[in-house]
Nucleic acid binder design. Structure first.
Lengths: 258, 258
DNA sequence: CGCATCGAATGGTAATACTAATGATGGAGT
DNA sequence: ACTCCATCATTAGTATTACCATTCGATGCG
Protein backbone atom coordinates (compact mmCIF):
# COMPACT_ATOMS: atom_id res chain seq x y z
CA UNK A 1 0.00 0.00 0.00
CA UNK A 2 1.04 3.60 -0.58
CA UNK A 3 3.69 2.47 -2.98
CA UNK A 4 4.01 5.95 -4.46
CA UNK A 5 5.05 7.44 -1.13
CA UNK A 6 7.82 4.91 -0.60
CA UNK A 7 9.73 6.19 -3.57
CA UNK A 8 8.98 9.79 -2.69
CA UNK A 9 10.15 9.92 0.88
CA UNK A 10 13.47 8.18 0.30
CA UNK A 11 15.68 10.48 -1.75
CA UNK A 12 18.96 8.86 -2.71
CA UNK A 13 21.05 11.31 -0.73
CA UNK A 14 19.39 10.46 2.55
CA UNK A 15 20.06 6.74 2.38
CA UNK A 16 20.79 5.13 5.70
CA UNK A 17 23.69 3.15 4.36
CA UNK A 18 27.31 3.64 5.30
CA UNK A 19 27.13 7.22 4.04
CA UNK A 20 24.66 8.30 6.65
CA UNK A 21 26.87 11.10 7.90
CA UNK A 22 28.66 13.79 5.98
CA UNK A 23 32.11 12.90 7.18
CA UNK A 24 31.54 9.40 5.87
CA UNK A 25 30.75 10.82 2.48
CA UNK A 26 33.98 12.80 2.53
CA UNK A 27 35.82 9.64 3.58
CA UNK A 28 34.17 7.66 0.82
CA UNK A 29 35.68 9.96 -1.75
CA UNK A 30 38.97 10.92 -0.14
CA UNK A 31 39.85 7.50 1.22
CA UNK A 32 39.78 5.53 -2.02
CA UNK A 33 41.71 8.16 -3.93
CA UNK A 34 44.49 8.28 -1.34
CA UNK A 35 44.47 4.48 -1.08
CA UNK A 36 44.80 4.27 -4.85
CA UNK A 37 47.95 6.35 -4.70
CA UNK A 38 46.46 9.34 -6.50
CA UNK A 39 48.31 11.57 -4.05
CA UNK A 40 52.00 10.86 -3.62
CA UNK A 41 53.39 10.49 -0.11
CA UNK A 42 54.19 13.97 1.12
CA UNK A 43 51.28 15.57 -0.70
CA UNK A 44 49.63 18.09 1.60
CA UNK A 45 45.95 18.97 1.82
CA UNK A 46 44.67 21.94 3.75
CA UNK A 47 41.51 21.84 5.81
CA UNK A 48 40.27 24.92 4.01
CA UNK A 49 40.86 23.28 0.66
CA UNK A 50 38.96 20.16 1.66
CA UNK A 51 36.22 22.35 3.13
CA UNK A 52 35.73 24.06 -0.21
CA UNK A 53 36.18 20.93 -2.26
CA UNK A 54 33.47 19.01 -0.45
CA UNK A 55 31.34 22.02 0.50
CA UNK A 56 31.19 20.99 4.12
CA UNK A 57 32.08 22.63 7.37
CA UNK A 58 35.41 22.49 9.09
CA UNK A 59 34.10 20.12 11.77
CA UNK A 60 33.14 17.52 9.20
CA UNK A 61 36.48 17.75 7.42
CA UNK A 62 38.34 17.38 10.68
CA UNK A 63 36.37 14.30 11.65
CA UNK A 64 37.22 12.72 8.32
CA UNK A 65 40.88 13.64 8.73
CA UNK A 66 40.94 12.10 12.21
CA UNK A 67 39.72 8.82 10.80
CA UNK A 68 42.30 8.89 8.00
CA UNK A 69 44.88 9.68 10.64
CA UNK A 70 43.86 6.69 12.73
CA UNK A 71 44.35 4.52 9.65
CA UNK A 72 47.78 6.13 9.39
CA UNK A 73 47.11 7.26 5.85
CA UNK A 74 47.89 10.88 6.74
CA UNK A 75 49.30 13.05 9.48
CA UNK A 76 47.92 16.44 10.40
CA UNK A 77 50.30 19.08 11.69
CA UNK A 78 50.07 22.84 12.13
CA UNK A 79 51.63 24.93 9.44
CA UNK A 80 52.08 21.85 7.22
CA UNK A 81 48.55 20.67 6.67
CA UNK A 82 47.34 17.12 6.19
CA UNK A 83 50.11 15.17 4.50
CA UNK A 84 49.91 11.74 2.93
CA UNK A 85 52.15 9.14 4.56
CA UNK A 86 54.21 6.52 2.70
CA UNK A 87 52.39 3.26 2.04
CA UNK A 88 54.65 1.37 4.44
CA UNK A 89 53.12 3.34 7.30
CA UNK A 90 49.51 2.52 6.48
CA UNK A 91 47.34 0.22 8.59
CA UNK A 92 47.17 -2.42 5.88
CA UNK A 93 44.87 -4.59 7.99
CA UNK A 94 42.12 -2.01 8.28
CA UNK A 95 39.14 -3.59 6.48
CA UNK A 96 37.98 -0.20 5.27
CA UNK A 97 41.33 0.53 3.70
CA UNK A 98 41.42 -2.94 2.17
CA UNK A 99 38.03 -2.37 0.60
CA UNK A 100 39.11 1.00 -0.74
CA UNK A 101 42.10 -0.63 -2.39
CA UNK A 102 40.02 -3.51 -3.71
CA UNK A 103 37.75 -0.94 -5.33
CA UNK A 104 40.56 0.77 -7.21
CA UNK A 105 43.57 0.17 -9.37
CA UNK A 106 45.36 -1.70 -6.58
CA UNK A 107 42.81 -4.49 -6.61
CA UNK A 108 45.07 -7.22 -8.06
CA UNK A 109 47.93 -6.43 -5.67
CA UNK A 110 45.52 -6.36 -2.72
CA UNK A 111 43.92 -9.65 -3.72
CA UNK A 112 47.38 -11.12 -4.02
CA UNK A 113 48.34 -10.06 -0.48
CA UNK A 114 45.06 -11.34 0.90
CA UNK A 115 45.40 -14.65 -0.88
CA UNK A 116 48.87 -15.24 0.53
CA UNK A 117 47.66 -14.28 3.98
CA UNK A 118 44.74 -16.63 3.81
CA UNK A 119 46.97 -19.44 2.61
CA UNK A 120 49.12 -18.92 5.67
CA UNK A 121 46.34 -18.65 8.22
CA UNK A 122 43.66 -21.11 7.19
CA UNK A 123 45.54 -24.37 7.78
CA UNK A 124 46.39 -23.54 11.41
CA UNK A 125 42.87 -22.20 11.82
CA UNK A 126 41.46 -25.52 10.63
CA UNK A 127 43.63 -27.33 13.14
CA UNK A 128 42.47 -25.03 15.90
CA UNK A 129 38.84 -25.51 14.90
CA UNK A 130 39.31 -29.27 15.11
CA UNK A 131 40.33 -28.72 18.72
CA UNK A 132 37.91 -26.05 19.79
CA UNK A 133 34.82 -25.89 17.56
CA UNK A 134 31.40 -26.24 19.10
CA UNK A 135 29.41 -29.39 18.33
CA UNK A 136 26.88 -27.39 16.33
CA UNK A 137 29.63 -25.88 14.18
CA UNK A 138 31.11 -29.32 13.49
CA UNK A 139 27.75 -30.53 12.27
CA UNK A 140 27.23 -27.46 10.12
CA UNK A 141 30.64 -27.94 8.52
CA UNK A 142 29.75 -31.51 7.58
CA UNK A 143 26.50 -30.33 6.04
CA UNK A 144 28.25 -27.54 4.16
CA UNK A 145 30.72 -30.04 2.74
CA UNK A 146 27.83 -31.96 1.24
CA UNK A 147 26.06 -28.83 0.03
CA UNK A 148 29.24 -27.66 -1.68
CA UNK A 149 29.66 -31.00 -3.38
CA UNK A 150 26.08 -30.82 -4.63
CA UNK A 151 26.16 -27.23 -5.90
CA UNK A 152 29.64 -27.78 -7.30
CA UNK A 153 28.61 -30.75 -9.38
CA UNK A 154 25.50 -28.90 -10.48
CA UNK A 155 27.65 -26.00 -11.69
CA UNK A 156 25.71 -23.51 -9.57
CA UNK A 157 28.61 -21.20 -8.86
CA UNK A 158 26.61 -18.61 -6.93
CA UNK A 159 25.24 -21.11 -4.45
CA UNK A 160 28.64 -22.75 -4.28
CA UNK A 161 30.27 -19.43 -3.45
CA UNK A 162 27.79 -18.81 -0.65
CA UNK A 163 28.49 -22.18 0.93
CA UNK A 164 32.22 -21.78 0.39
CA UNK A 165 32.19 -18.45 2.21
CA UNK A 166 30.18 -19.85 5.09
CA UNK A 167 32.45 -22.87 5.30
CA UNK A 168 35.61 -20.81 5.67
CA UNK A 169 33.92 -18.25 7.92
CA UNK A 170 32.80 -20.94 10.37
CA UNK A 171 36.23 -22.48 10.37
CA UNK A 172 37.91 -19.18 11.17
CA UNK A 173 35.34 -18.20 13.76
CA UNK A 174 35.46 -21.55 15.51
CA UNK A 175 39.24 -21.52 15.64
CA UNK A 176 38.85 -19.77 18.95
CA UNK A 177 41.32 -17.12 17.90
CA UNK A 178 39.61 -13.78 17.48
CA UNK A 179 42.29 -12.56 15.07
CA UNK A 180 41.71 -15.56 12.82
CA UNK A 181 38.00 -14.86 13.14
CA UNK A 182 38.60 -11.26 12.17
CA UNK A 183 39.85 -12.43 8.80
CA UNK A 184 36.61 -14.12 7.83
CA UNK A 185 35.25 -11.02 6.13
CA UNK A 186 38.43 -10.64 4.12
CA UNK A 187 38.46 -14.28 3.10
CA UNK A 188 34.95 -13.77 1.83
CA UNK A 189 36.25 -10.92 -0.30
CA UNK A 190 38.99 -13.12 -1.71
CA UNK A 191 36.60 -15.92 -2.57
CA UNK A 192 34.16 -13.48 -4.15
CA UNK A 193 36.94 -11.72 -5.99
CA UNK A 194 38.25 -15.01 -7.30
CA UNK A 195 34.88 -15.79 -8.80
CA UNK A 196 34.56 -12.28 -10.20
CA UNK A 197 37.97 -12.59 -11.81
CA UNK A 198 36.83 -15.80 -13.52
CA UNK A 199 39.59 -17.71 -11.84
CA UNK A 200 37.14 -20.47 -11.06
CA UNK A 201 36.53 -23.22 -13.57
CA UNK A 202 32.91 -23.70 -14.54
CA UNK A 203 32.75 -26.65 -12.19
CA UNK A 204 34.93 -26.55 -9.07
CA UNK A 205 37.57 -29.23 -9.22
CA UNK A 206 36.37 -32.54 -7.84
CA UNK A 207 39.51 -32.73 -5.73
CA UNK A 208 38.72 -29.39 -4.10
CA UNK A 209 35.25 -30.64 -3.25
CA UNK A 210 36.60 -33.81 -1.70
CA UNK A 211 39.14 -31.78 0.28
CA UNK A 212 36.49 -29.52 1.74
CA UNK A 213 34.50 -32.56 2.78
CA UNK A 214 37.66 -34.02 4.25
CA UNK A 215 38.36 -30.91 6.30
CA UNK A 216 34.81 -30.98 7.59
CA UNK A 217 35.14 -34.63 8.49
CA UNK A 218 38.47 -34.09 10.23
CA UNK A 219 37.11 -31.18 12.26
CA UNK A 220 34.03 -33.22 13.09
CA UNK A 221 36.22 -36.03 14.36
CA UNK A 222 38.56 -33.72 16.23
CA UNK A 223 41.66 -34.48 14.15
CA UNK A 224 43.70 -31.27 13.99
CA UNK A 225 46.54 -32.72 11.97
CA UNK A 226 44.29 -34.08 9.26
CA UNK A 227 42.25 -30.87 9.10
CA UNK A 228 45.38 -28.81 8.76
CA UNK A 229 46.88 -31.01 6.07
CA UNK A 230 43.68 -31.08 4.05
CA UNK A 231 43.31 -27.31 4.30
CA UNK A 232 46.91 -26.95 3.21
CA UNK A 233 46.01 -28.87 0.08
CA UNK A 234 43.05 -26.58 -0.52
CA UNK A 235 45.13 -23.43 -0.34
CA UNK A 236 48.05 -24.98 -2.20
CA UNK A 237 46.62 -23.87 -5.51
CA UNK A 238 46.93 -20.24 -4.45
CA UNK A 239 50.37 -20.09 -6.03
CA UNK A 240 48.75 -20.64 -9.39
CA UNK A 241 45.98 -18.17 -8.62
CA UNK A 242 48.42 -15.50 -7.51
CA UNK A 243 50.27 -15.82 -10.78
CA UNK A 244 47.02 -15.33 -12.67
CA UNK A 245 46.02 -12.35 -10.55
CA UNK A 246 49.31 -10.49 -10.82
CA UNK A 247 51.43 -11.98 -13.59
CA UNK A 248 53.94 -9.15 -13.46
CA UNK A 249 54.83 -9.64 -9.82
CA UNK A 250 57.88 -11.60 -8.70
CA UNK A 251 57.03 -15.27 -8.94
CA UNK A 252 58.25 -18.30 -7.05
CA UNK A 253 61.66 -18.38 -8.68
CA UNK A 254 62.41 -14.74 -9.30
CA UNK A 255 65.46 -13.08 -7.83
CA UNK A 256 66.91 -16.39 -6.79
CA UNK A 257 70.55 -15.69 -6.11
CA UNK A 258 73.38 -17.76 -7.66
CA UNK B 1 73.71 28.42 27.53
CA UNK B 2 70.58 29.47 29.35
CA UNK B 3 70.19 26.01 30.75
CA UNK B 4 67.52 27.15 33.14
CA UNK B 5 65.23 28.10 30.29
CA UNK B 6 65.50 24.67 28.68
CA UNK B 7 63.77 23.06 31.60
CA UNK B 8 61.23 25.83 31.82
CA UNK B 9 59.96 25.77 28.24
CA UNK B 10 59.44 22.02 28.07
CA UNK B 11 56.85 21.07 30.66
CA UNK B 12 56.18 17.32 30.78
CA UNK B 13 52.55 17.70 29.80
CA UNK B 14 53.43 19.34 26.51
CA UNK B 15 55.56 16.44 25.30
CA UNK B 16 55.38 15.91 21.57
CA UNK B 17 54.49 12.28 21.97
CA UNK B 18 51.32 10.63 20.73
CA UNK B 19 49.21 12.74 23.07
CA UNK B 20 49.94 15.98 21.33
CA UNK B 21 46.29 16.78 20.72
CA UNK B 22 43.40 16.82 23.10
CA UNK B 23 41.36 14.21 21.30
CA UNK B 24 44.32 11.85 21.56
CA UNK B 25 44.35 12.34 25.29
CA UNK B 26 40.67 11.47 25.45
CA UNK B 27 41.35 8.41 23.31
CA UNK B 28 44.24 7.38 25.50
CA UNK B 29 41.91 7.13 28.46
CA UNK B 30 38.67 6.01 26.83
CA UNK B 31 40.17 3.51 24.38
CA UNK B 32 41.95 1.28 26.88
CA UNK B 33 39.00 1.18 29.24
CA UNK B 34 36.60 0.13 26.50
CA UNK B 35 39.16 -2.32 25.12
CA UNK B 36 39.53 -3.82 28.58
CA UNK B 37 35.82 -4.54 28.68
CA UNK B 38 35.07 -2.06 31.45
CA UNK B 39 31.92 -1.11 29.58
CA UNK B 40 29.68 -3.97 28.52
CA UNK B 41 28.51 -4.12 24.91
CA UNK B 42 25.41 -1.97 24.69
CA UNK B 43 26.64 0.55 27.25
CA UNK B 44 25.85 4.05 26.01
CA UNK B 45 27.89 7.19 26.51
CA UNK B 46 26.58 10.64 25.72
CA UNK B 47 28.69 13.35 24.16
CA UNK B 48 27.69 15.70 26.97
CA UNK B 49 28.80 13.18 29.54
CA UNK B 50 32.17 12.70 27.91
CA UNK B 51 32.47 16.46 27.52
CA UNK B 52 32.06 16.94 31.24
CA UNK B 53 34.11 13.92 32.19
CA UNK B 54 37.18 15.04 30.24
CA UNK B 55 36.56 18.78 30.53
CA UNK B 56 36.95 19.31 26.79
CA UNK B 57 34.75 20.78 24.11
CA UNK B 58 32.22 18.95 22.03
CA UNK B 59 34.44 19.05 18.94
CA UNK B 60 37.22 17.17 20.68
CA UNK B 61 34.87 14.52 22.02
CA UNK B 62 33.34 14.05 18.61
CA UNK B 63 36.72 13.54 16.99
CA UNK B 64 37.64 10.92 19.58
CA UNK B 65 34.33 9.16 19.02
CA UNK B 66 34.89 9.12 15.26
CA UNK B 67 38.18 7.34 15.75
CA UNK B 68 36.62 4.79 18.11
CA UNK B 69 33.88 4.35 15.55
CA UNK B 70 36.40 3.66 12.79
CA UNK B 71 37.88 0.95 15.01
CA UNK B 72 34.34 -0.39 15.31
CA UNK B 73 34.52 -0.21 19.09
CA UNK B 74 31.39 1.93 19.22
CA UNK B 75 28.56 3.26 17.11
CA UNK B 76 27.16 6.72 17.41
CA UNK B 77 23.50 7.29 16.66
CA UNK B 78 21.10 10.11 17.37
CA UNK B 79 18.88 9.64 20.37
CA UNK B 80 20.85 6.60 21.48
CA UNK B 81 24.29 8.02 22.09
CA UNK B 82 27.63 6.32 21.67
CA UNK B 83 27.14 2.63 22.35
CA UNK B 84 29.80 0.00 22.82
CA UNK B 85 29.73 -2.77 20.24
CA UNK B 86 30.23 -6.49 20.97
CA UNK B 87 33.84 -7.63 20.86
CA UNK B 88 33.21 -9.71 17.73
CA UNK B 89 32.63 -6.50 15.79
CA UNK B 90 35.90 -4.84 16.77
CA UNK B 91 38.77 -4.28 14.32
CA UNK B 92 40.99 -6.74 16.13
CA UNK B 93 43.89 -6.01 13.76
CA UNK B 94 44.10 -2.34 14.61
CA UNK B 95 47.53 -1.90 16.20
CA UNK B 96 46.23 0.83 18.48
CA UNK B 97 43.49 -1.43 19.80
CA UNK B 98 45.97 -4.29 20.19
CA UNK B 99 48.23 -2.08 22.27
CA UNK B 100 45.32 -0.96 24.39
CA UNK B 101 44.46 -4.56 25.11
CA UNK B 102 48.06 -5.48 25.75
CA UNK B 103 48.17 -2.71 28.33
CA UNK B 104 45.19 -4.01 30.25
CA UNK B 105 43.67 -7.11 31.74
CA UNK B 106 43.31 -8.73 28.33
CA UNK B 107 47.06 -8.92 27.84
CA UNK B 108 47.42 -12.70 28.12
CA UNK B 109 44.55 -13.38 25.73
CA UNK B 110 45.89 -10.83 23.27
CA UNK B 111 49.39 -12.27 23.43
CA UNK B 112 47.92 -15.69 22.84
CA UNK B 113 46.08 -14.57 19.70
CA UNK B 114 49.15 -12.79 18.40
CA UNK B 115 51.38 -15.78 19.06
CA UNK B 116 49.09 -18.11 17.14
CA UNK B 117 48.89 -15.62 14.31
CA UNK B 118 52.62 -15.26 14.12
CA UNK B 119 53.06 -19.01 14.16
CA UNK B 120 50.79 -19.21 11.13
CA UNK B 121 52.30 -16.38 9.14
CA UNK B 122 56.03 -16.51 9.71
CA UNK B 123 56.83 -19.80 7.97
CA UNK B 124 55.21 -18.75 4.66
CA UNK B 125 56.79 -15.34 5.10
CA UNK B 126 60.21 -16.94 5.43
CA UNK B 127 59.58 -18.90 2.24
CA UNK B 128 58.53 -15.75 0.45
CA UNK B 129 61.58 -13.91 1.70
CA UNK B 130 63.79 -16.66 0.33
CA UNK B 131 62.25 -15.92 -3.06
CA UNK B 132 62.05 -12.16 -2.99
CA UNK B 133 64.43 -10.61 -0.46
CA UNK B 134 66.97 -8.06 -1.61
CA UNK B 135 70.63 -9.05 -1.56
CA UNK B 136 71.34 -6.57 1.22
CA UNK B 137 68.59 -8.08 3.37
CA UNK B 138 69.94 -11.60 2.82
CA UNK B 139 73.35 -10.48 4.03
CA UNK B 140 71.88 -8.72 7.04
CA UNK B 141 69.95 -11.84 8.01
CA UNK B 142 73.13 -13.90 7.95
CA UNK B 143 74.84 -11.33 10.14
CA UNK B 144 71.91 -11.23 12.54
CA UNK B 145 72.01 -15.00 12.84
CA UNK B 146 75.58 -14.78 14.06
CA UNK B 147 74.86 -11.83 16.35
CA UNK B 148 71.99 -13.72 17.93
CA UNK B 149 74.17 -16.74 18.51
CA UNK B 150 76.78 -14.56 20.18
CA UNK B 151 74.44 -12.59 22.43
CA UNK B 152 72.44 -15.74 23.14
CA UNK B 153 75.47 -17.66 24.39
CA UNK B 154 76.60 -14.62 26.34
CA UNK B 155 73.23 -14.51 28.08
CA UNK B 156 72.69 -10.88 27.06
CA UNK B 157 68.94 -11.09 26.72
CA UNK B 158 68.38 -7.42 25.90
CA UNK B 159 70.77 -7.43 22.98
CA UNK B 160 69.41 -10.78 21.92
CA UNK B 161 65.87 -9.43 21.94
CA UNK B 162 66.88 -6.50 19.76
CA UNK B 163 68.49 -8.77 17.19
CA UNK B 164 65.61 -11.20 17.35
CA UNK B 165 63.13 -8.42 16.63
CA UNK B 166 65.17 -7.12 13.72
CA UNK B 167 65.57 -10.63 12.36
CA UNK B 168 61.86 -11.29 12.21
CA UNK B 169 61.05 -7.77 11.05
CA UNK B 170 63.39 -8.06 8.08
CA UNK B 171 61.97 -11.43 7.20
CA UNK B 172 58.41 -10.13 7.22
CA UNK B 173 59.28 -6.94 5.37
CA UNK B 174 61.25 -8.76 2.70
CA UNK B 175 58.49 -11.27 2.14
CA UNK B 176 57.22 -8.86 -0.47
CA UNK B 177 53.74 -9.06 1.04
CA UNK B 178 52.77 -5.80 2.65
CA UNK B 179 50.29 -7.51 4.97
CA UNK B 180 53.00 -9.80 6.27
CA UNK B 181 55.18 -6.72 6.63
CA UNK B 182 52.41 -5.00 8.54
CA UNK B 183 52.71 -7.64 11.24
CA UNK B 184 56.32 -6.85 12.06
CA UNK B 185 55.40 -4.34 14.74
CA UNK B 186 53.08 -6.84 16.38
CA UNK B 187 55.65 -9.62 16.27
CA UNK B 188 58.01 -7.26 18.04
CA UNK B 189 55.38 -6.86 20.76
CA UNK B 190 55.07 -10.64 21.10
CA UNK B 191 58.82 -11.12 21.37
CA UNK B 192 59.10 -8.31 23.88
CA UNK B 193 56.10 -9.57 25.81
CA UNK B 194 57.54 -13.06 25.90
CA UNK B 195 60.69 -11.73 27.51
CA UNK B 196 58.71 -9.57 29.91
CA UNK B 197 56.65 -12.59 30.94
CA UNK B 198 59.85 -14.45 31.73
CA UNK B 199 58.96 -17.14 29.25
CA UNK B 200 62.52 -17.10 27.98
CA UNK B 201 65.15 -19.26 29.63
CA UNK B 202 68.18 -17.41 30.85
CA UNK B 203 70.03 -18.57 27.77
CA UNK B 204 68.01 -19.03 24.58
CA UNK B 205 67.92 -22.67 23.60
CA UNK B 206 70.88 -23.68 21.47
CA UNK B 207 68.50 -25.32 19.02
CA UNK B 208 66.62 -22.06 18.54
CA UNK B 209 69.87 -20.27 17.81
CA UNK B 210 70.84 -22.86 15.22
CA UNK B 211 67.41 -22.66 13.65
CA UNK B 212 67.61 -18.88 13.26
CA UNK B 213 70.99 -19.25 11.60
CA UNK B 214 69.52 -21.96 9.40
CA UNK B 215 66.64 -19.73 8.30
CA UNK B 216 69.11 -16.98 7.47
CA UNK B 217 71.24 -19.40 5.50
CA UNK B 218 68.25 -20.77 3.59
CA UNK B 219 67.01 -17.30 2.72
CA UNK B 220 70.52 -16.33 1.68
CA UNK B 221 70.70 -19.33 -0.62
CA UNK B 222 67.20 -18.81 -1.99
CA UNK B 223 65.74 -22.04 -0.62
CA UNK B 224 62.09 -21.33 0.26
CA UNK B 225 61.27 -24.85 1.38
CA UNK B 226 64.15 -25.01 3.82
CA UNK B 227 63.48 -21.53 5.16
CA UNK B 228 59.83 -22.39 5.74
CA UNK B 229 60.58 -25.68 7.45
CA UNK B 230 63.18 -24.15 9.73
CA UNK B 231 60.86 -21.30 10.66
CA UNK B 232 58.13 -23.81 11.37
CA UNK B 233 60.47 -25.43 13.88
CA UNK B 234 61.13 -22.05 15.47
CA UNK B 235 57.48 -21.30 15.99
CA UNK B 236 56.64 -24.88 16.94
CA UNK B 237 57.29 -24.15 20.58
CA UNK B 238 54.49 -21.61 20.62
CA UNK B 239 52.09 -24.32 21.71
CA UNK B 240 54.01 -24.58 24.93
CA UNK B 241 54.25 -20.83 25.28
CA UNK B 242 50.55 -20.37 24.71
CA UNK B 243 49.83 -22.83 27.47
CA UNK B 244 52.06 -20.84 29.80
CA UNK B 245 50.48 -17.54 28.82
CA UNK B 246 46.87 -18.63 29.21
CA UNK B 247 46.67 -21.89 31.14
CA UNK B 248 42.92 -21.69 31.51
CA UNK B 249 42.20 -21.53 27.82
CA UNK B 250 41.23 -24.59 25.77
CA UNK B 251 44.39 -26.51 25.01
CA UNK B 252 45.36 -28.83 22.18
CA UNK B 253 43.16 -31.69 23.26
CA UNK B 254 40.22 -30.00 24.87
CA UNK B 255 36.72 -30.49 23.65
CA UNK B 256 37.75 -33.43 21.52
CA UNK B 257 34.52 -35.17 20.63
CA UNK B 258 34.03 -38.92 21.00
C1' DC C 1 -2.84 -2.21 18.33
C1' DG C 2 -1.34 1.30 15.29
C1' DC C 3 0.12 5.82 14.76
C1' DA C 4 1.10 10.66 15.67
C1' DT C 5 3.69 13.42 18.62
C1' DC C 6 7.38 14.74 21.66
C1' DG C 7 11.82 15.15 23.13
C1' DA C 8 16.54 13.68 23.77
C1' DA C 9 20.77 13.12 21.65
C1' DT C 10 23.64 13.34 17.66
C1' DG C 11 24.69 15.76 13.15
C1' DG C 12 26.10 19.95 10.98
C1' DT C 13 27.36 25.04 10.49
C1' DA C 14 29.64 29.27 11.62
C1' DA C 15 32.43 32.59 13.96
C1' DT C 16 36.38 33.24 16.77
C1' DA C 17 40.39 32.83 19.63
C1' DC C 18 44.57 30.06 20.63
C1' DT C 19 48.79 27.67 19.54
C1' DA C 20 52.43 25.43 17.14
C1' DA C 21 55.72 25.35 13.37
C1' DT C 22 58.50 27.72 10.16
C1' DG C 23 60.54 30.92 7.21
C1' DA C 24 62.11 35.72 6.92
C1' DT C 25 64.22 39.55 8.96
C1' DG C 26 67.66 42.11 10.99
C1' DG C 27 71.28 42.94 14.16
C1' DA C 28 75.69 41.52 16.43
C1' DG C 29 80.08 39.68 16.11
C1' DT C 30 83.93 38.11 13.24
C1' DA D 1 81.18 41.71 3.55
C1' DC D 2 79.71 37.43 5.78
C1' DT D 3 77.93 34.18 9.13
C1' DC D 4 75.21 33.16 12.92
C1' DC D 5 71.39 33.48 15.72
C1' DA D 6 67.52 35.51 18.07
C1' DT D 7 63.18 37.44 17.09
C1' DC D 8 59.04 38.21 14.74
C1' DA D 9 55.42 37.57 11.41
C1' DT D 10 52.81 34.30 8.91
C1' DT D 11 50.30 30.24 8.18
C1' DA D 12 47.48 26.47 9.12
C1' DG D 13 45.83 23.31 12.44
C1' DT D 14 43.61 23.15 17.29
C1' DA D 15 40.05 24.22 20.39
C1' DT D 16 35.90 26.65 22.16
C1' DT D 17 31.31 28.24 21.85
C1' DA D 18 26.61 28.87 20.28
C1' DC D 19 22.93 27.58 17.54
C1' DC D 20 19.92 25.10 14.35
C1' DA D 21 18.71 20.64 11.81
C1' DT D 22 17.89 15.81 11.84
C1' DT D 23 16.93 11.45 13.53
C1' DC D 24 14.78 8.00 16.09
C1' DG D 25 13.10 5.84 20.36
C1' DA D 26 9.44 6.37 23.69
C1' DT D 27 5.15 7.81 25.14
C1' DG D 28 0.49 7.92 25.08
C1' DC D 29 -3.69 8.75 22.67
C1' DG D 30 -7.35 7.19 19.62
Amino acid sequence: MAAAEETADAPPGAARGPHRTLHNRVLAELGPSIAAGEYAPGHAFTLDGLERRFQVSRTVVREAVRVLESMRLVVSRPRTGVTVRPVAAWNVFDPQLIRWRLAGAGRPAQLRSLTELRAAVEPPAAAAAARRASPAARERLLALGELMTASGHAGDLDTFLGHDIEFHAILLRESGNEMFAGLSGLVAEVLTGRTAYHLMPEHPRAEALRLHALVASAVHSGLPGVAEAAMREIVAEVGVQIERIAPGEPGPFDRRPG
